Simulated assay, not measured.
Amino acid sequence: MNAMLLLVKKLSYDVEEQIFSEVSLAIEKPESYFEKFKERLDERGIDSPIDQLAWISLVDALLDHDLAFELDWKESGLYICDVVDELLDRKKMACMSWEDFEDGEIDELPTSQCLNEISGKLKEQAISLACLDIESDCYVLITVPSSDIDEIMKLAQEAGCRIQDSF
């Protein structure tokens, strides 16, 4: 099985069959995938099948199933905490207490610094906050057990994509 499909298995939680189906279509029949998801791809400015179609199909499928969240590059810290809570809840991972961030100082930080602060707090609970790189000015965030992050990043690299756990 190729690295992209192994990545699907690691990231798709309880909707593996649906996501596997979408990504497989993008790999095996890119024209068919493009036609089926033309509207979704159009929103990304993609007007024909591209080399990274399988990667984009994985990202979009994770977004559709609330297993990832696409965040603007200039979001506030407490909003990001809410997003992370939703990602954790979706995968039934431990909820976090954000009391340390409620003084408002995190909202003054640039988004990348906020993400690093939040990531550090999650690591205390053996959870990694990671970003699926789609070469855009946004962050596509996922949460995964820290024990899986190295393998996930390695599979992404083998698949010709990038997942990073620092911002």
Results as ranks from 00 to 15, higher is better:
Met1Leu: 03
Asn2Ser: 14
Ala3Arg: 01
Ala3Gln: 02
Met4Lys: 03
Leu6Pro: 00
Lys9Tyr: 05
Lys10Ala: 09
Ile19Ser: 03
Ile19Thr: 03
Phe20Ile: 01
Phe20Val: 00
Val23Trp: 09
Val23Glu: 02
Ala26His: 08
Ala26Ser: 04
Ala26Val: 05
Glu28Ser: 13
Tyr33Lys: 10
Lys36Arg: 15
Phe37Gly: 01
Lys38Ser: 12
Lys38Leu: 09
Glu39Phe: 13
Glu39Asp: 14
Arg40Ser: 15
Leu41Tyr: 04
Asp42Lys: 11
Glu43Tyr: 09
Glu43Ile: 09
Gly45Asp: 02
Ile46Phe: 06
Gln52Thr: 08
Leu53Glu: 01
Ala54Tyr: 11
Ala54Thr: 06
Ala54Trp: 12
Ile56Asn: 06
Ile56Val: 14
Leu63His: 07
Asp66His: 15
Leu67Ser: 04
Leu67Phe: 08
Leu71His: 07
Lys74Phe: 14
Leu78Lys: 11
Tyr79His: 08
Tyr79Gly: 04
Ile80Phe: 11
Ile80Thr: 13
Asp82Leu: 10
Asp82Gln: 14
Asp82Ser: 15
Asp82Asn: 14
Val83Leu: 10
Glu86Asp: 14
Glu86Gly: 10
Asp89Phe: 02
Lys91Val: 00
Lys92Asp: 13
Lys92Asn: 14
Ser97Gly: 01
Asp100Tyr: 02
Asp100Leu: 06
Glu102Arg: 14
Glu102Ser: 13
Asp107Val: 10
Glu108Ala: 06
Gln113Met: 10
Cys114Phe: 11
Leu115Ser: 06
Leu115Thr: 09
Asn116Thr: 12
Glu117Cys: 04
Ile118Gln: 07
Gly120Phe: 09
Gly120Asp: 13
Gly120Ile: 01
Ile127Gly: 04
Ile127Cys: 03
Leu129Val: 08
Ala130Pro: 09
Ala130Val: 04
Cys131Glu: 09
Leu132Trp: 00
Asp133Pro: 05
Ile134Phe: 04
Ile134Trp: 01
Glu135Ser: 11
Glu135Ala: 12
Asp137Leu: 11
Cys138Gly: 12
Val140Met: 07
Leu141Gly: 14
Leu141His: 11
Val144Gln: 10
Ser146Lys: 09
Ser146Gln: 15
Ser147Ala: 14
Ser147Leu: 12
Ser147Glu: 14
Asp148Ile: 02
Glu151Leu: 12
Ile152Met: 03
Gln164Phe: 13
Gln164Ser: 12
